[in-house]
Design a protein around this nucleic acid. Structure first.
Length: 502
RNA sequence: GGCUCUGUCGUCUAGCGGUUUAGGACAUCGCCCUCUCAAGGCGGAGAUCGUCGGUUCGAAUCCGAUCAGAGCUACCA
C-alpha cells in the first residue's frame, strides 16, 4: 500500500458536504475538525460540494451551507467562491475528471460494463430475501461477458453502468485509521460496486477517490458512516494506482434518546441554533468537545486555542449524545465574555424585536443606549432570544402592563405597605435636584428604609412591579436610569391609581 | 444474514497495568452573597468502569467469551 503522506508535506484536508439539506450538527462538527486540524498544522482547508445526487442536491442548499460555515467562522482556503488551484470545487462541474479516471480503468481492464437493470437487481435481491438468505451482493452476471459482445451492446445504445472488477483472491484490505487504529476487512465480501451510473455520472465512492486524489488531500476526516466504505474506496485507489490518504473517522452524534439525531429531537441544523440565539463561538467550542478533548479538564476552549491545540490523537470512538443543556450553559459563558459592542451586533435582531422597530436608522441611533443594556442582560442570558421578554418594558413609554401574580404577591400582600412605599419613592424620583443616575437614585431611595422602618425588599419590590410590571426583572435602578423621568413617574401614578383606588 | 465498530457518574469526558478512596465539566441538591432574577463562591450526592471468565503480586487499563447499541451491505452520500 502506498502512502501519500511523505514527511514534511503540507496537510490538506477537506469538508465535503452534499447539498441535500441544511448544515446538520454532525456535518458542522466534521467541518470544525477539518478546519481546526488544518489551522493547527498550518495546512490547507478545502471545501468541496458533493452534488452527485441529482435528485436531492440543490443550489439553494449549497448557499445555505456556505452561509452556515461562514457564520461559524470556518473559513476555507480553497473551494466555492474563493477558488484555488484544483477547482472547480463542485462535483457536477468536474465530470471530465471522472471520465478520465474511467478511461484509465477501462484501459487496465479494472472495470466492466454491466447491463443488468435496476429492476432485475431488485428482483434478485427480493428473491434472495424470501429464500431466507439475505442478499449477498451483485451476482457478477456481466463480469465475464465477452468484451466484443459487450462493446456491440454498448454501441447499440443499451443502457449500462460501469462496475469495478474487484480482483479475485485479494488479501484483506488494511489501513490505519487515525482514530480507530488498525483496520482489516476481508476483500471477498466486497461487491463489484458501480462506479459510473447509466447516465454517465459517478457514484459517491468513485467521485471521492478521484477528487481527493486530484485535490491532493492528505487526511480524510469524515463521519464514521464511511468507515465501511473505506475498504471499497481503497480498492478503487488501488485500481487507479493512486496513493492512499490517511483516514480519520468520527463517531456519530445522537439525540437524547440515543437514536440518530433527527428533526424529531428538535433543532438539528446550525442555522436553527443561530436563530435561537446561540453564538457561533459557542457552537464551535461545544461541537469541538463532542468527541474530542484538550486535556480532560478544560471545557471553555476559545477558537484560537482550538486552532493551536487540535489534533487527531484525542478523538473519541464512542458515539456522543447531543446535550442541549450543556450547550445552553456554555452559551451563557460566551455571552458574559463578549464586549458590549459585539453583543449589540450579535443581538441586533432581538434588540430590535423588543423595541418593535428594526430599521437601520433606529438601530444605529440606539447603539450606545443598547450597549448600556449589556451589563444588565449578560449575566441573566443564556440565549439571545431571551432578550425581548427581559427588556420589552423599557419601550412601553408612559404605559405599564402589570403582571397579575406580581401585583398580588408584592403590592396587595397583607401588611406590606406597598402604597406607602411607592409614594415615598415617587417623591424621590420626582426630585429634580437628584441627578438621573442609578447610584444617586438608588441611594436616595435606600435612605428611605430607616425612617420608614421598611426592609429594602419591601421598598424596592413594589417599585419594581410598578415600573417593570413584574416582580422579576433586570436591575431596577439601572433600568430607571435608561428611562425618562416622565415615563417612570407616569407608571408609578398609574399603578397607584389602578391597584389601590377601587 | 454478512462485514465492521462502540460500551467509565443522567450527559460530555479524563484515564493507556500500581501515583485511583476512578479526576473534570454540565445537570441536580444544600449553604453563602442578595431589593427580584441571575451571575458568583463553597460543599454534597452521583460510575462496583456492560456482563462473565482468564493473564498478573496487582486490571477500568491486557486476552477470550457473552450481551447490548450503532454503521455499512443502493445506479444515496
Amino acid at each position: 500500500m502506498v502512502s501519500n503522506k511523505s514527511a514534511g508535506e503540507q496537510v490538506r484536508v477537506r469538508f465535503a458536504p452534499s447539498p441535500t439539506g441544511r448544515l446538520h450538527i454532525g456535518g458542522a462538527r466534521t467541518a470544525i475538525y477539518n478546519w481546526a486540524f488544518a489551522r493547527a498544522t498550518g495546512g490547507v482547508f478545502v471545501l468541496r460540494i458533493e452534488d452527485t445526487d441529482p435528485d436531492r442536491s440543490t443550489e439553494e442548499n449549497t448557499q445555505i451551507i456556505l452561509r452556515a460555515l461562514r457564520w461559524m467562522g470556518l473559513d476555507w482556503d480553497e473551494g466555492p467562491e474563493v477558488g484555488g488551484p484544483f477547482g472547480p470545487y463542485i462535483q457536477t462541474k468536474r465530470t471530465h475528471i471522472y471520465a478520465e479516471a474511467l478511461e484509465k480503468l477501462k484501459a487496465k481492464n479494472a472495470v466492466y460494463p454491466c447491463f443488468c437493470s435496476k429492476e432485475e437487481l431488485e428482483q434478485k435481491r427480493a428473491a434472495a430475501e424470501e429464500a431466507g438468505k439475505a442478499y449477498i451482493g451483485y451476482d457478477k452476471t456481466c463480469r465475464d461477458l465477452d468484451p466484443a459482445v459487450a462493446q456491440t451492446r454498448i454501441d447499440a445504445g443499451e443502457p449500462h453502468v460501469w462496475r469495478l472488477r474487484v480482483p479475485e483472491g485479494h488479501e484483506p484490505i488494511e489501513f490505519d485509521d487515525a482514530v480507530y487504529g488498525h483496520m482489516s476487512f476481508p476483500a471477498d465480501v466486497m461487491d463489484d460496486m458501480i462506479l459510473v451510473r447509466s447516465d454517465g455520472s459517478p457514484t459517491y465512492n468513485f467521485a471521492v477517490v478521484c477528487d481527493d486524489t486530484d485535490m491532493r488531500i492528505t487526511h480524510v476526516i469524515r463521519g464514521d458512516d464511511h468507515l465501511s466504505n473505506t475498504p471499497r474506496q481503497i480498492l478503487i485507489y488501488e485500481a487507479l494506482g493512486y496513493p492512499i490518504p490517511t483516514f480519520a473517522h468520527l463517531s456519530m452524534i445522537l439525540g437524547p434518546d440515543g437514536k440518530k439525531l433527527s428533526k424529531r429531537h428538535g433543532a438539528t441544523s446550525v442555522e436553527e441554533y443561530r436563530d435561537e440565539g446561540y453564538l457561533s463561538d459557542t457552537m464551535v467550542n461545544f461541537l469541538a468537545l463532542l468527541g474530542w478533548s484538550l486535556d480532560g479538564e478544560t471545557t471553555i476552549i476559545p477558537r484560537d486555542v482550538l486552532c493551536e491545540k487540535f489534533g487527531l490523537n484525542r478523538i473519541t470512538k464512542k458515539d456522543a449524545i447531543f446535550d442541549e443543556t450543556k450547550l445552553t450553559w456554555m452559551n451563557g459563558v460566551y455571552i458574559r465574555e463578549m464586549t458590549p459592542a459585539a453583543f449589540v451586533e450579535a443581538a441586533r435582531p432581538w434588540l430590535c424585536k423588543a423595541a418593535g422597530c428594526d430599521d437601520d436608522g433606529f438601530f444605529e441611533g440606539h447603539r450606545v443606549w443598547f450597549e448600556k443594556l449589556y451589563p444588565l442582560l449578560a449575566e441573566r442570558l443564556v440565549r439571545l432570544d431571551e432578550i425581548p421578554d427581559k427588556i420589552a418594558f423599557l419601550f412601553w413609554g408612559n404605559n405599564i402592563i402589570l403582571d397579575a401574580d406580581s401585583v398580588d404577591k408584592t403590592l396587595k400582600k397583607e401588611g406590606c405597605r406597598a402604597k406607602e412605599a411607592l409614594l415615598a419613592c415617587r417623591d424621590v424620583l420626582a426630585d429634580t435636584s437628584i441627578s438621573w443616575n442609578f447610584e444617586a437614585l438608588q441611594d436616595a431611595c435606600k435612605a428611605l428604609c430607616e425612617p420608614m422602618e421598611l426592609k429594602p425588599k419591601l421598598l424596592f419590590q413594589p417599585l419594581r412591579v410598578a415600573i417593570t410590571g413584574n416582580m422579576v426583572s433586570i436591575p431596577l435602578f439601572e433600568s430607571i436610569e435608561l428611562m425618562s423621568r416622565e415615563n417612570v413617574l407616569a407608571r408609578i401614578d398609574y399603578t397607584i391609581d389602578h391597584v389601590f383606588e377601587q
